Amino acid sequence: MSDQQQPGKSSVIDTLKLILSISLLVAGIAGFYYFSAYPTLYRVLGILVIGGVSVGIVLTTAIGRLTASYLKESRQEVRKVIWPTRQETMQSTLVVVALVFVVGLILWLLDMVLFWGVGLLTGQRV
Rank of each mutant, 00 (worst) to 15 (best):
16 L>T: 05
17 K>S: 00
17 K>G: 00
18 L>H: 02
19 I>S: 11
19 I>V: 14
19 I>F: 08
19 I>P: 01
20 L>H: 02
20 L>S: 03
21 S>H: 01
23 S>R: 04
25 L>D: 00
26 V>N: 08
27 A>P: 03
28 G>I: 00
28 G>A: 09
28 G>L: 00
30 A>L: 12
31 G>T: 00
31 G>I: 00
31 G>C: 04
32 F>N: 01
32 F>Q: 03
34 Y>V: 10
34 Y>K: 15
34 Y>W: 14
34 Y>R: 13
35 F>S: 15
35 F>G: 15
35 F>I: 06
35 F>L: 15
35 F>Q: 13
36 S>I: 04
36 S>L: 10
37 A>D: 10
38 Y>S: 15
38 Y>H: 14
40 T>K: 12
40 T>H: 10
41 L>T: 06
41 L>F: 12
41 L>I: 07
42 Y>K: 07
42 Y>F: 09
43 R>A: 10
44 V>R: 13
46 G>V: 01
46 G>A: 10
46 G>E: 02
47 I>N: 01
49 V>W: 06
49 V>A: 09
49 V>H: 03
50 I>L: 02
51 G>P: 00
52 G>F: 09
54 S>W: 00
55 V>R: 05
56 G>H: 07
56 G>N: 04
56 G>Y: 04
56 G>I: 02
58 V>W: 00
58 V>R: 00
58 V>P: 00
59 L>E: 10
59 L>Y: 10
60 T>R: 09
60 T>A: 06
60 T>W: 05
61 T>V: 03
61 T>S: 02
61 T>Y: 02
62 A>Q: 15
62 A>R: 10
62 A>T: 09
63 I>T: 06
64 G>S: 06
64 G>K: 02
65 R>F: 07
65 R>I: 04
66 L>C: 11
66 L>R: 12
66 L>K: 15
67 T>S: 13
69 S>Q: 14
69 S>P: 07
70 Y>K: 12
71 L>K: 12
71 L>V: 08
71 L>D: 07
72 K>L: 14
73 E>V: 09
74 S>D: 10
74 S>V: 04
74 S>I: 04
74 S>E: 13
74 S>K: 14
74 S>Y: 12
76 Q>P: 01
76 Q>G: 05
77 E>Q: 11
78 V>A: 14
79 R>K: 09
79 R>H: 07
81 V>D: 05
82 I>A: 06
82 I>H: 06
82 I>G: 03
83 W>E: 12
83 W>I: 08
83 W>D: 03
84 P>M: 05
84 P>V: 02
84 P>A: 08
85 T>H: 07
85 T>C: 08
85 T>R: 04
86 R>Y: 11
86 R>A: 15
86 R>H: 13
87 Q>A: 15
87 Q>C: 13
88 E>I: 06
89 T>P: 10
89 T>Q: 05
89 T>D: 06
89 T>Y: 03
90 M>L: 15
90 M>T: 06
90 M>G: 08
91 Q>N: 13
91 Q>D: 12
92 S>Q: 11
94 L>R: 13
95 V>D: 03
95 V>K: 08
98 A>S: 12
99 L>M: 07
100 V>F: 15
100 V>G: 11
100 V>C: 15
101 F>A: 13
